[in-house]
Nucleic acid binder design. Structure first.
Lengths: 111, 111
DNA sequence: TACTAATATTAGCTACAGCTAATATTAGGT
DNA sequence: ACCTAATATTAGCTGTAGCTAATATTAGTA
């Protein structure tokens, strides 16, 4: 599953945006998404599963609650994919930025 | 239409990857996509239209040919969206990178 | 002005993504 | 042991994204 296939859904994107601000329980996520999209708990739970299965989120149990967190790996894939277009809006990547970009690329191959 | 809704299709992504390497005629795009995905000229043309309409690509006429090019604006939206997650894989954005990031943000509000 | 090449458009079909309703699971409290 | 709260799972429905086949358009060419 390509990262973009997962991100091509507004509910899933919203969930990730929420998780970007920190960990949240399933119930929290349901509350927010339900308010904004008007869908059922079931639907949200299904989307959380898709995010888990695709490696965009991780869960840990806290009593009867499930605490979700973003898993950054798949999002970095998106960042990497964008590399081929960056030259278009950074016409001349100056020396400073080049250094930073190089460090970034290096880090990627390590992890 | 959110940028990710457009990118959530492998054919459209492939077309953009191709255009990232430079301008290409509709025919060129059709040839590549047809070879890799086995779909018709019609299908490719429809996807090109979607990319145009969504602002991901621009066209210019050259005789009977249509020359396509990437339009970077919508891809920068994706880049912007990722900002909220970058802290996850750049735990401590050092001074150098911060400067670069600041310049980037500034540029965005100008354009 | 007939013909061809390149591309776009349209109508109609179909698979499937994302939903609901119902039910199952699991942990904790009394 | 029973009950409730939190969450997950399943079966089944439905709208629509993306396709094909056919046709239209547009520009160049003999």
């Amino acid at each position: 599953m390509h990262a973009f296939d997962i991100l091509g859904d507004p509910v899933r994107r919203r969930i990730l945006e929420l998780l970007a601000t920190g960990e949240h329980s399933s119930g929290d996520v349901v509350a927010v998404v339900q308010r904004e999209f008007g869908i059922t708990q079931s639907a949200v739970s299904q989307q959380l599963r898709i995010l888990r299965d695709a490696g965009f989120a991780s869960v840990r149990a806290d009593g009867t609650r499930r605490i979700y967190a973003v898993e950054p790996g798949r999002l970095r894939e998106v960042d990497d994919w964008l590399d081929r277009f960056r030259a278009l809006w950074l016409p001349r990547l100056d020396a400073l930025a080049t250094e930073v970009a190089r460090g970034k690329r290096k880090r990627r191959h390590q992890n």
